[in-house]
């Protein structure tokens, strides 16, 4: 069972309190974009995932805690979290991830 740092509670809590919510930073097209979009592009938004082997930006929901969604960088080979951050924050750069790993 993973230990997950909730950036809202600012605490490490066991995985059982959280629900995984898929890849992060996939932005839902707005109504104007939707109207313009091809079926193929819309399908990409809905279904295509990086499924990366390595540092993965992903979403978690602190369902049995503060009820907030947040993002995380977790390595999918080691399952270790490098960092968690709030939904409003940008995806960390590779450099930021590297720095966080060395902390």
């Amino acid at each position: 069972m993973l230990l997950i740092h909730c950036p809202h509670c600012n605490e490490e809590r066991p995985e059982l309190e959280f629900a995984y919510a898929g890849e992060a930073h996939i932005v839902r097209p707005n109504e104007a974009e939707q109207a313009e979009m091809s079926d193929a592009d819309w399908s990409k938004f809905m279904f295509i995932r990086d499924n990366i082997r390595g540092d993965h930006a992903e979403r978690w929901w602190h369902a049995h805690g503060c009820n907030m969604f947040f993002n995380a960088i977790r390595n999918t080979v080691t399952d270790k979290f490098t960092m968690t951050y709030k939904v409003c924050q940008k995806r960390p750069t590779e450099h930021q991830i590297k720095v966080a790993k060395n902390d």
């Binding site: 069972m1 993973l2 995985e15 059982l16 995984y20 993965h56 999918t76 399952d79």
Partner: peptide, 13 residues
């Protein structure tokens, strides 16, 4: 497990 992973390592629960 609920999250994506290539670790071939599952959780106790």
């Amino acid at each position: 497990d609920q999250y994506t992973s290539y670790s071939q390592r599952g959780a106790l629960h």
